[in-house]
Design a protein around this nucleic acid. Sequence first.
DNA 1: TAGTTTGTACAGTAAAAACTGTACGAACTG
DNA 2: CAGTTCGTACAGTTTTTACTGTACAAACTA
Lengths: 179, 179
Amino acid sequence: MSEQEKLDQARERVIETVSQNMNLYGIAPSIGRLYGMLYFKNTPMTLDEMKEELGMSKTSMSTSVRSLLELKMVEKVWKKGSRKDQYRAEEDWHQTFVDLFTTKWRPSISMNIGAIEKSIKEMEQIITEKTADAEVLNAAKADINKLYEALAYYDWLGRLVDSFESGEIFNLVPKEKNE
Amino acid sequence: MSEQEKLDQARERVIETVSQNMNLYGIAPSIGRLYGMLYFKNTPMTLDEMKEELGMSKTSMSTSVRSLLELKMVEKVWKKGSRKDQYRAEEDWHQTFVDLFTTKWRPSISMNIGAIEKSIKEMEQIITEKTADAEVLNAAKADINKLYEALAYYDWLGRLVDSFESGEIFNLVPKEKNE
DNA sequence: TAGTTTGTACAGTAAAAACTGTACGAACTG
DNA sequence: CAGTTCGTACAGTTTTTACTGTACAAACTA
C-alpha cells in the first residue's frame, strides 16, 4: 500500500466516525460524509469537485451543501477568477456545536412553550367554566401541574442554549483541559 | 365539543409538539408520541393498553417501549395481581435530558476519539518512515494538526457530558429561574 | 401436565427518506 | 444578442426505515 493510500485510509476512518456522530444530531450520513471530506481539504471546493470526489449527483451536492450552510457548518467563499461557488468547512467544532444547537433547538423550544401555554389556558378554562364533571376536572388539574413542570424544563433548556450561544458554557466546561 | 374532548385536544397538542421535539434528538415520531401519551397517564400502562390507545400493533409497542427503556424515559413497574408488564413515563425531564445525552453521546465520543487517535498514529508513522514524497508528507502533517484539534473538541464534549451526568451543569444553568 | 397468556424475533409489507436526471432560470461571455 | 455555464426545482426512482402479522419461547395457571 502506498503512503498516499495509507493517508487516505486514515482520513476515511475519521470521516466515517465523524459522519456517524453527526447522524446522532439528525444529520444524514451522506451529508456528514460530505462535511468530513470538506474538513480535510485545505482549499475550498466547488459542487462539481464534491460530486467528483464522492461519486454522487450534483443535485445532491447542492442540497447537502445548503443543509450544511444552514447549520453554519460550511461557508461560501469568494474566489477570484471562478464563476463557480466555492465552499469551505467550518473548522472550529466548538463553534459548530454551539451553532447547531442554537439553530435546531431554539425554534423547537419556542414551539413547545407556545403549545404548552396554549394548552394550559384551555385547561384552566375547563376548570373555571365549572360545567365539567369531577373526573374531567381532576384530570385537567393534574395535567396543568404536569404542564407547569414541562414549562419549567423548556425554560431551563432555553437558558442552557443561551449559555451555549453566549459562550458562558466555556466557563463551566473550559475548552482547554486544566491539568 | 365536550369538556372531555377539549381536554383531549389540549393534551394532543402538547403530545404532538413534544414528539416533534424528541424527533430532534433522533427519536422516531411514533416513539415520541407513545412517550407523550404515557406522560399524561397517571397510571402505568400495559402493552395492550398502549396498543389500544394508539391503534398500533403490539409488536410496535414492545419495540418502542424497549427503546424508551434504553433511554430511561420509561420504567417498568411491578403491579400486584397483573401478569402483564406495566410501564410508566419518567416525569423529570431534566433527568431525562441528562440520561439521553449520557446514553447516546458517550459511546459516540469514545468511538470518535478512538478513530482519531488511531489515524494520528498512522499519519505519524507515514512521517517517521520518510519514504513518502513531499506532497503526501505535508498533507499528513496538516491532517495531524486538524486531528489534534478534533481530539480537543471531543475531549471537551466528554467533559460537557460529565457535567450533565454529575449535575454540575445545574450550577451554571439552575433549574429554577432566579428572578 | 396440558392449556393459557405474555412478550418478542423474524420475515414480509408499507411508508418515508435519500438520491438522481431532466429541465430551466439566472448570470455570465463574446 | 445568442451561446454557455451554473445552481436548483421538481418528478421519478431507489434505498432505507417503520410497522405489522405470524409464530414461538417463557412464564404462569389449574
